[in-house]
Design a protein around this nucleic acid. Structure first.
Lengths: 139, 139
DNA sequence: CCCTAGTCATTTGCCGTCTAACGATTGATG
DNA sequence: CATCAATCGTTAGACGGCAAATGACTAGGG
């Protein structure tokens, strides 16, 4: 089994578990913080726009939005000028999560990268960036 | 949004898509190659053993095994000495996938890391390794 | 002005993954 | 030797994710 692919997949599992438990503290599931982040950046986005921003398909956003609106994090409303569109709007509860969730994520990133030297951190980012780009080109 | 966590999650999405399409060429779904790899290494493993080797829960292996046995990649058989145990055995079809799948994975790894210098590749592994370890400790 | 082609969101169905509940078997203990 | 705790696999149900099919609405062309 190839070295990098293998290590990356194991790391992904660990990180996912970590993010999962961190986000559950705020009543969120894995990925929902990203959807919220998209709305924090630009409230009232359409499922299609958000899906593109998150690099995810539209049905994924639709499903998540349904669950998140069920727990009162956001609301759905059709666009007034184009009835094909739906816009997702944050509720106060959704807005209120911004600070704690962003802090949680920063905190996690720090703990995770604590053992790295500044050089390692920088090189890790450029190397991962290259791989991300190469992968995207192959897609 | 933290730098590394963000880049890592984007990279994961890309890599998953890549692995997915690569494995689909052999009639596999994401993750099933790992299950097969475990059996290639040691045929007749129990769901629990395999789950531990893959860093995944037992139910996940059970479900995958059900689907994979339905398409004839492996068979289930109860252990003769301990009827609580179930052992998964490769079929010829499952064994036959070994070379092509391993080649596919090596090929993908090469293409993905082609842009990296030898130094970058080495540092990437040690840095990712540190993160993997730090994450595991936090779990 | 109507009809068609394009654009969206949604639904459906599948897969991997997890946690929690359930069921069966083994083994140790009194 | 019978019972009870530990050990396994399986099932049930939830979630993120994807592809394909469906349905509603808009806009452009005749």
């Amino acid at each position: 089994m190839p070295e990098f692919l293998d290590l990356h997949s194991r790391t992904t599992k660990v990180l996912r578990a970590l993010v999962e438990t961190a986000m559950r503290r705020h009543g969120l599931h894995q990925g929902q913080d990203h959807l919220l982040a998209a709305l924090w950046k630009r409230d009232g986005g359409t499922p299609g726009e958000i899906a593109a921003a998150l690099h995810v398909t539209t049905p994924t956003v639709v499903k998540m939005a349904t669950r998140m609106s069920a727990v009162g994090l956001l609301t759905r409303r059709r666009d007034e000028h184009d009835s094909r569109l739906v816009r997702l709007w944050l509720t106060d509860a959704g807005r209120a999560l911004r600070e704690p969730v962003e802090a949680e994520r920063r905190n996690l990133e720090e703990k995770i990268t604590a053992d790295l030297t500044e050089d390692e951190r920088r090189l890790l980012m450029t190397a991962l960036g290259k791989i991300h780009k190469a992968g995207g080109d192959l897609l």
